[in-house]
């Protein structure tokens, strides 16, 4: 449904997106996972045809995005920010976007009602949007992008700042649309969301797609490794601790994340004592230790030396 090849964009000297390629099939949720500033929104803007690309190709349902209106008509986009007319009602907002995608008359009315129902806003449909809670606005933001039943739905961090109830409503809707055959591009910097929703995940950092695959493929790539989190008695020793453990046998990488030492090492209980001894020998006092099962978070840490949620 969507095929992206060699997408590139620079802003002045900064390369925001650097050779991103991937494809999404109908009925598939593709997660673009990466920290803030990784280039997710920039990629999406180019895919949706609202930002000029420096290089690369975007094809939607066999149509080049440069074909303009017919290609754009296949896309539904839900921007990262709340992009609603706050002085209009939910129904008026939906009605407007429906018309902008050539829906008319009875078909439009039905689509509006369905979209309202899908995000649970039927009761408040005739209230002005500025009176809505943040979560309700998020849900309407989503509804405005799905009303015209796009073949490709692009969601840019749709759950940022959302209450748990709205969040699960959004998840359910995404799953339903997926089951109905919509191709979905879902960006997020929350690992749990990517794990729960996405059939395939691309990890993006500093404009580059650094790896791609299903969740289990990505985690399997880590081999039989674990993450060991160590808290020190005194935080000022953390940087020194990194250099102490880096050379040790079986240690892949080490980094300071959120005032804790994160060590990436081969699996096995025998890895722990030498690690702690090395720290003790240099006068660093260990306060606590945690061994964590590998997750997407660790895939990211392993590939970039940083945590996703920084």
């Amino acid at each position: 449904m969507l095929s992206v090849r060699g997408l590139q964009k620079r802003f002045g000297a900064r390369v925001a997106v650097d050779g991103v390629s991937f494809a999404i099939k109908p009925g598939e949720v593709y997660g673009l996972l990466g920290p803030n500033g990784a280039g997710k929104t920039t990629s999406i803007s180019m895919i949706a045809g609202i930002l000029a690309r420096d290089a690369g190709e975007v094809e939607i349902d066999g149509l080049d995005i440069d074909a303009g209106p017919p290609a754009r008509a296949q896309i539904g986009i839900v921007p990262q920010a709340i992009t609603l007319y706050l002085d209009l009602t939910a129904r008026e907002n939906l009605h407007f976007w429906g018309r902008m995608y050539d829906r008319r008359g009875d078909g439009l009315r039905r689509a509006v009602e369905e979209a309202l129902q899908a995000v649970g806003l039927t009761k408040r449909a005739d209230d002005v949007v500025s009176t809505y809670s943040g979560g309700m606005q998020r849900r309407l933001n989503l509804a405005c992008g799905i009303l015209h039943q796009p073949k490709l739905l692009i969601l840019d961090e749709p759950t940022v700042g959302v209450d748990p109830q709205s969040r699960s409503a959004i998840f359910e809707l995404v799953e339903r649309l997926r089951d109905e055959g919509t191709a979905i591009l879902y960006t997020t910097h929350y690992m749990e969301e990517a794990e729960r929703l996405c059939s395939r995940i691309g990890i993006i950092d500093a404009g580059k797609l650094i790896t791609e695959g299903t969740r289990s493929e990505l985690v399997a790539d880590l081999g039989r490794a674990v993450r060991i989190e160590i808290g020190l008695e005194h935080d000022e020793g953390l940087e020194r601790a990194v250099s102490v453990v880096t050379g040790l046998e079986g240690v892949h990488s080490a980094a300071v994340v959120a005032e804790r030492l994160h060590v990436f090492a081969d699996e096995g209980a025998h890895r722990l004592p030498p690690l702690l001894t090395a720290l003790l020998n240099t006068g660093l006092v260990v306060a606590n230790v945690k061994v964590v099962e590998p997750s997407l978070e660790d895939v990211f840490l392993r590939l970039t030396g940083r945590m996703l949620r920084d």
Partner: peptide
């Protein structure tokens, strides 16, 4: 300012 222009530009309208 509110970004609705982004949505507008994503529609088939030139």
């Amino acid at each position: 300012d509110s970004g609705t222009i982004v949505r507008l530009m994503a529609t088939p309208a030139e």
